[in-house]
Amino acid sequence: MTPQAYCARLEQALSSMPPAERQEIIRYYLEFLEDASEDERSALGTPEELAQRILRENGIFPPDTAAAPPKKNSNRIAKWIILACTCYIWIPLLTTWYSLLLTALIVLAVIPIALCAALLGGLFTFVLALFQDVPSALMQLGMGLACGGVAALVAYPIWIACKSIVKFALFTTKKMWHFVTKGDDTP
Rank of each mutant, 00 (worst) to 15 (best):
S74D: 12
C7M: 07
H178N: 14
G148Q: 13
A169K: 07
G148M: 07
Q132Y: 07
C85Q: 10
F171S: 08
P19I: 06
P92C: 13
A169M: 11
A146M: 12
R9V: 01
R76G: 02
I111M: 10
L153A: 14
E11R: 13
P47S: 01
L145A: 12
Y28V: 03
D133P: 02
I106L: 14
Q52D: 10
F131H: 10
S99G: 12
T172E: 14
T2V: 05
P112E: 12
M139H: 04
P62K: 02
G121K: 12
C116V: 10
R27G: 10
Q23P: 06
H178A: 06
A43H: 14
P157Y: 05
M1L: 08
N58G: 03
L153D: 03
W80T: 05
I25R: 12
P3H: 12
A78T: 13
R41G: 08
I160Y: 01
E11T: 09
G142M: 11
K182Y: 14
T86M: 11
A137F: 01
L115P: 11
K79H: 15
A129H: 03
L102S: 13
L93I: 15
M176P: 01
F32R: 02
W177C: 06
C162R: 14
A8K: 09
V134C: 00
G122Y: 00
I158G: 06
A36T: 10
C147M: 12
P187S: 05
L55Q: 10
A129F: 06
R76S: 05
S164F: 01
A43T: 09
I60E: 00
S42H: 11
T173F: 15
K163W: 05
P62A: 06
I165K: 01
E31T: 10
G59E: 00
L14M: 03
I54S: 01
V180R: 07
D185T: 10
R9Y: 03
L119R: 04
A8G: 04
L55Y: 02
F61A: 13
S42I: 11
A146L: 15
P70E: 07
T181S: 11
G59F: 01
R41F: 06
E34V: 08
V127Y: 05
T172F: 12
C162W: 02
K175Y: 07
Y28T: 07
C116G: 02
Y29R: 03
Y6E: 02
E48I: 02
L105P: 07
T103D: 05
A68V: 14
G122S: 04
H178V: 02
I106C: 08
A104N: 12
A13K: 00
M139A: 14
A13F: 02
K72D: 05
L14D: 01
L100C: 13
T186S: 13
E21I: 02
I26F: 08
D133G: 02
L14R: 00
A129N: 03
A5Y: 03
G183L: 03
F179Q: 05
W97M: 15
L14N: 00
A137Q: 00
T181R: 09
C147A: 15
M17A: 00
L145N: 04
Y6L: 04
I113V: 14
G149S: 11
A118T: 08
Q132F: 14
V127T: 01
G142R: 08
E31V: 11
Y28Q: 10
A84E: 09
L170R: 04
A155Q: 06
P47C: 00
S15A: 03
G148T: 12
S74L: 11
E31M: 10
K71D: 08
